[in-house]
Design a protein around this nucleic acid. Structure first.
Lengths: 250, 250
DNA sequence: GAGCATTTGTCCGTATGTATT
DNA sequence: CAATACATACGGACAAATGCT
């Protein structure tokens, strides 16, 4: 099969992009069209191809920029640290509290947190930026019986983990987690500033207190696929192998 | 912000698509252009939008068809069964052995299987179809010390699990697994019949024998995002909470 | 197998809209 | 306000794959 012209151009550009720092501005559609002697439509197709490969990001009116994906590993063996993960990848992490308010637990979160529905809790909405680019939004629920008041603390100290440790006197660790690739609801689309109906990462998580085993926090986090590569590791130790259900098909 | 014409058309079509059975043929670009009084380019943009939402599949020369995604849940509590999962979703599963050959274990697989590099093993390549559409390809490695000869059995019995149980006299269960969303290598691109450089699901997995705890099989499976929605569930039982590393950031 | 209509894929040139700088 | 850059849209053309006759 013959490679299409825009495909060849995309391959050429992709090779050149490999040398560049994330955030670098890429040649405009017009200049690509001129350089390769094609129409702007073909040049555009090539850049869209690169966007599909997650190699670039495009901003209307501003230009096209070299993209980078942060590997975020979710594992049972390691406690999560988004800020550290981003920094270790050589990027600049920032998170912003968008909303913090008392609420009553919705059914799903109540069940996960092993509380009764409508139990009093704190709802926390945050946005996460990598190198100034919005990459994720999260909603977190913390039952009021873990920490009574959270508003002031949340603005002084960005890490919820630290707040729970200091104010709640608990030691939270991730006890359950579900990762999928789904279509976000309208509210999330607004918060993530993404196109409606476009699939993004969804990580649902619940943490327990190490000592008591009691759930102390749960969250749902939506992340743009172009900005992070979520990796989930699942491990069953040999001693626990028998605990599982059995079927006879691969 | 005003919604673009092709976006409106996409929304209209998406609503209509919801009523249709998977596999149904969708109106052609030309007829959409005529119906909505727009150019073919705009109609095409609308259909491409639907493709991006994973609602349709397009085949050159044939047409555009309603798509369905199969939810495939990977969990510690449940043994995997691809055929059953697909059937339960109301679709028709089929897997085909493409290649079965003796080989020496590559470094990565040798390490995972706790064998020495270049140890003799069987390499098995399979393709998976849902409703006749190619959705996944897998490579599986089985050390020769688990089953000596596998060629004939593999063609008579599709389930590797069953072969291992009967010929290898082991009871395999998934002990480790890693899921990510990655760019496939050229060989995989050919086997998956997908575009180069397009990200797809990658599930790496290793199974141990229940009784001995010894690794008996490992595999890498690549799956098209438009055909499956991979969900990974990770759970740490309260008793094991202390086993993990600690950090102090969320 | 050959021929034909259909359908998507690619590409051209041009024009206008809209967001950013 | 002007220049730049991406977004949307038009109309036309041919290529390539598919499915049917």
């Amino acid at each position: 099969m013959v490679r299409s012209r825009y495909g060849q151009i995309a391959d050429t550009l992709a090779a050149e992009l490999g040398e560049l720092e994330p955030g670098t501005k890429v040649a405009s559609e017009h200049s690509i069209a001129t350089r390769f002697g094609v129409s702007r439509a073909a040049a555009r197709a090539a850049v869209q191809e690169l966007e599909g490969r997650l190699l670039v990001r495009r901003v209307r009116g501003a230009g096209t920029f070299v993209n980078r994906r942060i590997d975020y590993v979710i594992s049972q063996r390691k406690a999560p640290s988004w800020h550290r993960t981003v920094r270790e990848a050589g990027a600049r992490p920032r998170s912003v509290v968008r909303e913090v308010s008392p609420c009553e637990l919705p059914a799903e979160q109540a069940s996960l947190l092993e509380r009764s529905e409508f139990a009093r809790a704190h709802r926390l909405v945050r946005q996460y930026y990598v190198d100034g680019l919005l990459t994720s939004v999260s909603k977190e629920w913390i039952p009021a019986d873990v920490v009574a008041d959270i508003d002031l603390a949340v603005h002084a100290e960005e890490s919820v983990d630290t707040i729970l440790r200091q104010m709640g006197r608990v030691c939270p660790v991730r006890a359950w987690c579900r990762v999928s690739y789904s279509i976000p609801d309208a509210e999330t689309v607004r918060a993530l500033e993404t196109e409606p109906h476009r699939p993004v990462w969804l990580v649902e998580s619940m943490s327990r207190d190490t000592a008591s085993g009691r759930p102390v926090m749960c969250s749902t986090t939506w992340s743009l696929p172009e900005s992070s590569r979520i990796v989930v590791e699942l491990e069953t130790s040999p001693e626990n192998l028998e605990e599982r259900e059995e079927t006879h098909e691969s």
